[in-house]
Design a protein around this nucleic acid. Structure first.
Lengths: 200, 200, 200, 200
DNA sequence: AATGAATGAGGCTTCATTCAT
DNA sequence: GATGAATGAAGCCTCATTCAT
């Protein structure tokens, strides 16, 4: 009864879809796109090669779908426990801290996103997209607010984003690769440093 | 007069090699590795497919050679006019400013390096290498010096590097993609912001 | 009834593999390795180029597999109807006669083996291997026995093999090429002559 | 004055030609045709790649020329000291002995000939050619004579050749490959055994 | 005559995708 | 729906041969 309480008719269908996604995510994250042919994804997922095409139109579709989902997950995470009524600083530190925590908790997602950006798939998607949509709603608003209150240096949003998120992503990668070892205290320090870059 | 006094009749010989390098650099930068098959590189360079193999052992060799040279160029540029006797701040701002200027002057080089890092080629080369070797000699020394003088926050070198260089590379990409428009004044402001992230 | 009871619907599956093997065997036998590119093997077999790689890891694998099988067939043939309890002479004549009969019945197999031996593939496999393994079990034992009984000249096994099998292979080639026309009587004579070379 | 006393105007011309031939012979013998591209032959010969084409129309021409020469050398060797007035047996043993001695003295020549036979070049040339022309003149006559005197078994020439020369070539190969160690006494024994195969 | 840089056809292999079962 | 055998275009690389110097 373990399976059925997830969804009535989902047993096979959803299962397979998820298996495929997970297999693709892992392979791309660990080996890059060049190490993730469809046949290998199918094998790792434990499904037939043709089966993937029941769930995704083609490889592009699969990859973009995963990317979109991972991206959305990033936003979700940053919004979890978001102190809507806190000060600008508190809110921004929350976002930065939660992002870093998530990225080092889910290294495959970070690796996947990085693979995606520099690949045929990411040609048009470019970084700014990473922090777009759902996020811009809240996050952009936050940055705008900080600008209006003259808390931030008077720079374009894109630049402020780079100043804040750029180093955070970098240190996550360094952590994943074992060059540094992040803990809560250190994360707080780094996020604080990024804040220093922004503030007037 | 630099090129001509190397060889009178070298036009052909040196040209071919340079043509190949330039073609590969452009294709990889613009289309990624997937969009740069050897045949296309050869065509763009205006040489026969086999000719490339007179100058480079194989595709890996070609790509790594370009990477190495581009990397070296980065270091050269940052060291040009380096104020050896200036204050820590002055020296670091010089490095940041010159790097940004170079990257937006040579957008293909930046794009190439980014393609390289996230690809089978860059697996071992990892980002921190980007700022290694010749650079670590001088740049790491500079950071160490700033740490000892308690000018910088007490963080590991890798983190300090990310705080300083991460956003700079990001804004160059944004500039190249047309999201922002950097000029000397703006560059100075952003480099200054990165400095703020570092200092205690 | 040997083939059909293996698989009803195997026609396709087994067929493809067999078609590839047969095509490769023929091409290599008739044109040498230089005249047997994978594309041509595929075409002759009536399959796609990539299909070969479902059955064999690469060209080496295909070629070696055919070689191994042909070799095994040689041994099988020589052991068919082997008069275990016959005199040394009777047993040796059986082996020689059956080998010759088989080789001229399957000219492609002989030509293939010869192509194999003088090629990158056969570097390590050397001729003496041709008559090794399953054969050495029985055939080497036979030669040893003949030596002990002082029926043969006191020479090393390798030399005795050459004296006996060398001419047999040669005349098969001559037969295949049409220089001579072997029949049962003639085969018997030649095998007898080879016996004369061995005996004391 | 070392060079000039070979031939007046040959210094460069003949030298180069010989160097090319020697290089090709060695490479083919040691690595097979697949290990002897024209560029490598040129390098080993110490000449330019294009130079080969001044002396030989193309690769085929070069290879066939070498083959023909090596073949001629075989005949020469067998005819050296040939006891024209000796008994049939004496003459044949001379031929066999000298052939073996030569082949193990010049292993490259044997290896080359074997490479040649099983290769695009040797498709039409087949073994019987090996012992043709100049040789058939004398050697065939010898075999014919033995037939007429009813010394030999009443078999076709081609078969008699195989019985006699087949094992001899085989043991030379085995010697070169280190499987056996031939000396004068052993050579004599083996040639004697081959004689036994022929005689009535 | 000699060179060797340049060529491009052709070889081996991979992999996204289809389709008969 | 699910499968996985089959496909063939496309990628990387080699090498016999040519031709400007």
């Amino acid at each position: 009864m373990d399976k059925t309480d997830k969804c009535e008719k989902a047993e096979k269908c959803c299962d397979k879809r998820e298996l495929i996604i997970q297999a693709a995510l892992e392979l791309v994250a660990e080996q890059g796109f060049h190490g993730a042919p469809m046949a290998m994804i199918a094998e790792k997922a434990g499904v037939g090669a043709g089966t993937i095409y029941r769930y995704f139109e083609n490889k592009d579709d699969l990859i973009r779908w995963i990317y979109k989902n991972v991206e959305e997950r990033f936003v979700e995470v940053m919004m979890q426990g978001y102190p809507e009524n806190g000060a600008v600083r508190e809110r921004l530190l929350h976002i930065g801290t939660e992002l870093v925590r998530h990225l080092i908790r889910e290294p495959l997602q970070l690796r996947f996103v990085e693979q995606f950006h520099n690949s045929p798939y990411g040609v048009d998607h470019r970084r700014e997209k990473l922090f777009s949509e759902g996020r811009k709603d809240v996050i952009s608003d936050l940055f705008q607010e900080a600008l209006q209150q003259q808390i931030f240096k008077p720079l374009e949003l894109a630049i402020l984003f780079s100043l804040f998120f750029g180093p955070l992503v970098d240190i996550c990668r360094d952590h994943i690769l074992g060059f540094i070892k992040l803990d809560d205290a250190l994360i707080e320090q780094v996020v604080g440093a990024c804040w220093d870059a922004l503030r007037r």
